[in-house]
């Protein structure tokens, strides 16, 4: 497994597509979340329509709200990026037929896949650190430029927040990797995953959230459970009425961990049994 992990790290590090995905995620958080909101509330505060005045809304970008802001900003886009990241790491091997090159080296199939998942977890940790670090810098810059004062959350909260971010990013990466193995096609894995994420969870989950039967199903979906975890880190200002969470944060964590195990085990089972090549 260590051999596979080392090989995966080399491949992952040298693949430009991975760095582009990370760049998109960081750009989204820094430019669209922090910079855009900061410029709007600073340069054109009258354009803000709503119950919360611009001066107060700005505080969402300050260190006191750092954890809920980064969790919110990295939510859906982070899920999409990690899903693509995971799908690329597995499905590409089938597209390029490199899976057969790998499998005729020394490690067993289980060792190959677990090494791949371990490398994916390592990459997710790096992405989590970059996202958290970039958001912290942006938060610091926002409060410094504004000349206001704001205190950072306690270390314990920061640590829990980082754990929450990491868990969600990992789940979506594992989901993407599982789809890549199941479909053996990059396009099908990414297309299917994003369709589920944006149409299944985000759109239908939002529209039919109050339908009793749908609500019971939604309680088991990874995105809904991720939202429940994020809600455990409230912002100091109330800029919207807020959505009632379908599950509590504790159950959310358990559900996501179960998903991680399920995606890993299913991927292993498929990868172990399936023939490579031929028709």
């Amino acid at each position: 497994m260590i051999a596979s992990f080392r090989a995966e790290n080399l491949k992952s590090r040298k693949r430009w597509a991975n760095w582009i995905l990370i760049g998109i995620l960081l750009a989204w958080i820094l430019l669209l979340t922090y910079l855009t909101l900061f410029l709007v509330v600073t340069l054109s505060p009258k354009s803000i329509q709503g119950p919360v005045p611009a001066s107060l809304l700005k505080r969402r970008l300050f260190p006191e709200n750092f954890v809920p802001t980064v969790l919110g900003a990295a939510g859906t886009i982070g899920a999409a990026i990690m899903l693509i990241f995971g799908a690329l790491s597995t499905a590409s091997e089938f597209g390029w037929l490199t899976v057969q090159t790998i499998l005729i080296q020394k490690p067993t199939r289980a060792a190959v896949l677990l090494g791949k998942f371990l490398a994916l977890a390592g990459a997710t940790l790096l992405i989590g650190i970059l996202v958290f670090g970039a958001a912290a810098l942006a938060s610091f810059a926002a409060v410094t430029l504004d000349g206001s004062s704001s205190s950072w959350p306690a270390w314990e909260v920061m640590l829990k927040g980082f754990g929450a971010l990491l868990l969600q990013l990992t789940i979506w990466a594992a989901f993407g990797a599982f789809l890549g193995i199941a479909f053996r096609s990059t396009a099908a894995a990414i297309g299917g995953g994003l369709t589920y994420l944006f149409v299944g969870e985000a759109l239908l989950g939002g529209l039919l959230r109050n339908t009793p039967i749908v609500r019971d199903v939604l309680r088991f979906l990874p995105g809904i459970n991720g939202d429940a975890i994020n809600a455990a880190f409230p912002v100091t200002i109330r800029d919207s009425a807020g959505q009632t969470q379908l599950v509590n944060a504790g159950r959310g964590v358990i559900t996501l961990v179960v998903y991680l195990v399920v995606f890993t085990v299913l991927s292993l089972l498929i990868f172990q049994r399936r023939d490579v090549g031929g028709s």
Binding site: A3, R15, V99, Q100, K106, G277
Partner: peptide, 25 residues
């Protein structure tokens, strides 16, 4: 070498061998 030689298109020939060498220890 079964059927087509399959390697990572974005890697150099040497890096592809580095990947294979790592898998094979």
């Amino acid at each position: 070498m079964v059927e087509t030689p399959a390697f990572y298109p974005y890697l150099s020939g040497r890096d592809n061998l580095r990947v294979v060498a790592r898998y094979a220890s």
